[in-house]
């Protein structure tokens, strides 16, 4: 454990040193098209959301199940007196459900506040727009990086008509 620990700490220190050393130059160069995202894991995927849309990150409180809603709505939670709907992206994207999801990312866009289920919120990182490979078929994704990080377009996602209960599609 000692050797492993040492190696890991050394690695960490090296990464940190690189982080401290590198970004300044890169930011200077790529500041214009850089996208700062909050990354999180859910199911088999790693997603990223623009920090501009993120209101808060927290552990998942007790979820109150709401009847007669689509399956991707887990229910509602009470955050400091504010009722927030909880959206399960695996159900929304027709992916296998993630039973270990225990964290919540509150996002806001298009006058809508929504909680996204996450198994583990990882990091805030900067992604250059130029490195994103666009996914034409999917509207609510800005693109995917070389590291298979799917950067979500929260604006588009929250405007999806399926999310609006009682909207034209439902009835």
């Amino acid at each position: 454990m000692g050797w492993d620990d040492d190696a890991r700490q050394r690695d960490l220190l090296r990464q940190r040193a690189e982080q401290y050393a590198a970004p300044l130059k890169r930011r200077d160069e790529t500041l214009a098209d850089a996208l700062t995202v909050l990354t999180f894991r859910l199911g088999a995927e790693t997603y990223g959301v623009d920090v501009a849309a993120v209101r808060a990150v927290r552990q998942l409180p007790r979820v109150t199940v709401v009847p007669a809603v689509p399956a991707f709505y887990r229910g509602v939670v009470n955050l400091r007196g504010q009722i927030i709907s909880v959206l399960d992206l695996t159900a929304f994207f027709d992916l296998p459900p993630d039973v270990d999801a225990g964290e919540l990312i509150v996002v806001a866009a298009a006058n809508l506040e929504l909680g996204l289920l996450a198994r583990h919120v990882e990091d805030v990182q900067t992604v250059p727009r130029s490195t994103l490979k666009p996914l034409d078929s999917i509207r609510w994704a800005l693109g995917v990086t070389a590291e298979q990080l799917v950067v979500l377009d929260i604006q588009q996602l929250l405007m999806d008509e399926r999310l609006i209960i009682g909207a034209a599609g439902d009835d």
Binding site: L38, V57, R58, Q59, V121, D123, V124
Partner: peptide
């Protein structure tokens, strides 16, 4: 520790914004 991480993540988000 979990709560600290959450706080730190929130702080990171705020800082980024």
């Amino acid at each position: 520790a979990d709560q600290s991480r959450m706080l730190a993540l929130n702080a990171s988000v705020e800082a980024a914004r």
